[in-house]
């Protein structure tokens, strides 16, 4: 293998880029340049700013990093942000699997209708969806009015401004991101495999856990990645539905950059959020590699 590559290398070098796998790399040039200029460079700048000491960006000490990571409050904010992502992934997972199964078992005409319903939340702006949830969850909202009318409780339940309410809203908002990849993968599962499992005497549940679930995991990993990244960074939903008592990383970034003018500290929080999201994604990616290798 190595010797083959060595002998052919001299002549191959000249035309290697376009010929290998027939990919015209220069086609990616404009996007690559745009990414370098408008994404990579600002990211480096953000990273650099985080090491400054003061808001006028005069001294480089890294003191803001020390302040952020030595304060138990900010550590708890990181923990809470991660937890929000994890719980939302869990909730969307539990709700998405049955829906995906129903989808795959439906007739094509019903599938079209279901697909429209699933995509619908993506077609409304996040601001509208979030404020719609205020109408549903508020003290005089739809849920509380129903509860009071049915006599299930004498006083309105606190739903808004709670972790429960926030996860509920985020689950609805992020659900399509879980469902769409899951459905794509599930539809590709050979129905004969499921039939074989049933024919060999496995129960419905066993067939699900031992056949369908493992085969659909790549779709789940993709969905979980999207839901996690999207829910931990959902600034509007977090601040409007979660309220001031639930502090997450995005609101710390907003306060420090837009109100306090402490950009180095905001940069520290932003880099931390980035790393938090990337860690979640890497864990999920590692999981998918392990599953693929099985």
């Amino acid at each position: 293998m190595a010797s083959v590559a060595a002998t052919g290398s001299a002549e191959a070098k000249a035309s290697m880029a376009p010929r290998r796998d027939g990919v015209e790399w220069p086609l990616a040039g404009p996007l690559g340049l745009a990414y370098t200029a408008f994404f990579a460079a600002p990211l480096l700048l953000l990273f650099a700013i985080s090491f400054y000491d003061d808001s006028d960006l005069t001294r480089i000490t890294g003191s803001q990093w020390v302040k952020f990571f030595s304060d138990p409050f900010y550590l708890s904010v990181i923990g809470r942000t991660l937890q929000l992502g994890a719980v939302t992934v869990l909730a969307t997972t539990v709700l998405s699997f049955p829906l995906a199964l129903v989808f795959c078992a439906s007739r094509p005409s019903v599938q079209k209708l279901l697909l429209l319903i699933i995509i619908m939340p993506l077609l409304t702006s996040v601001v509208v969806r979030t404020f719609a949830w205020i109408v549903i969850l508020a003290r005089e909202g739809v849920i509380n009015q129903a509860i009071l009318t049915l006599g299930l409780s004498a006083t309105p339940l606190p739903l808004l401004q709670t972790e429960f309410g926030l996860v509920l809203a985020l689950t609805q908002i992020e659900m399509p991101l879980m469902l769409l990849p899951l459905i794509t993968v599930m539809r590709a599962i050979d129905p004969n495999v499921v039939d074989a499992s049933r024919a060999l005497g496995a129960s419905r549940w066993r067939t699900f856990f031992q056949v369908i679930l493992p085969l659909s995991l790549p779709g789940w990993v993709a969905g979980a990645t999207l839901v996690f990244a999207s829910s931990v960074t959902a600034f509007i939903s977090q601040s409007v539905i979660g309220g001031g008592r639930l502090v997450f990383l995005p609101s710390v970034i907003w306060q420090q950059s837009m109100v306090v003018y402490n950009w180095p500290f905001a940069a520290v929080a932003a880099v931390t959020l980035l790393v938090t999201v990337l860690t979640g994604i890497c864990l999920l990616a590692a999981l998918s590699v392990r599953l693929a290798g099985r």
Partner: peptide, 22 residues
């Protein structure tokens, strides 16, 4: 007052929460 208050809110949420009776 914290255990009793109806909400600790983001300023942007104020109009919505007032309108909805929260």
């Amino acid at each position: 007052a914290l255990p009793k208050v109806a909400a600790v809110m983001a300023p942007a949420a104020l109009p919505g929460l007032f309108q909805q009776g929260q």
